[in-house]
Computed example of a mutant assay.
Amino acid sequence: MHPILTAAVVAAALFLGGCASTGAPVDVSGADVATRTLENGDTFEEYRVAGQLRMVKITPLRGAPYYLYDRDGDGALDRDDADKVPQTYWKLFSW
């Protein structure tokens, strides 16, 4: 292998490893978790710190769980400025 290609492969592996290990973009340690099952079978978990909603984890009956966050701490879930829809995050890697 060429040295530049080898360096690129190593850099990509380190980058992906760093992305996978960063965890949630908000601190939910010590959060109160309220879990409920929706009519369609999805599981809805609210994470509240000091009574303020910080994160929501939604686990569909079929499919991968996804997350909604309040990263700025204003009490509202983050939204895309253009469409005003919640920003949705999936966990891509875990080990």
Score class of each variant (00 low, 15 high):
85 V>N: 12
23 G>S: 06
67 Y>Q: 08
21 S>R: 14
91 K>D: 03
85 V>T: 13
18 G>V: 01
91 K>H: 10
38 L>K: 15
28 V>Q: 07
69 Y>D: 12
21 S>A: 12
35 T>V: 08
80 D>V: 14
64 A>I: 00
62 R>G: 05
31 A>Y: 01
45 E>I: 01
67 Y>R: 08
89 Y>K: 10
73 G>I: 04
22 T>K: 11
76 A>V: 02
74 D>M: 06
64 A>N: 10
73 G>T: 01
59 T>Y: 00
2 H>W: 02
37 T>L: 03
76 A>L: 14
40 N>W: 02
46 E>Y: 03
27 D>R: 02
41 G>D: 00
70 D>Y: 03
36 R>S: 11
8 A>M: 13
73 G>M: 09
78 D>G: 08
92 L>R: 11
26 V>A: 13
85 V>G: 01
71 R>K: 15
7 A>T: 12
23 G>E: 07
47 Y>M: 05
95 W>V: 02
54 R>C: 04
45 E>Q: 14
49 V>R: 04
20 A>Q: 13
87 Q>H: 08
74 D>C: 08
10 V>Q: 07
11 A>V: 09
35 T>N: 05
48 R>E: 00
87 Q>W: 03
20 A>V: 06
77 L>M: 15
57 K>E: 09
58 I>M: 12
47 Y>C: 04
40 N>S: 09
92 L>M: 14
81 D>P: 07
66 Y>E: 10
14 L>E: 00
32 D>S: 04
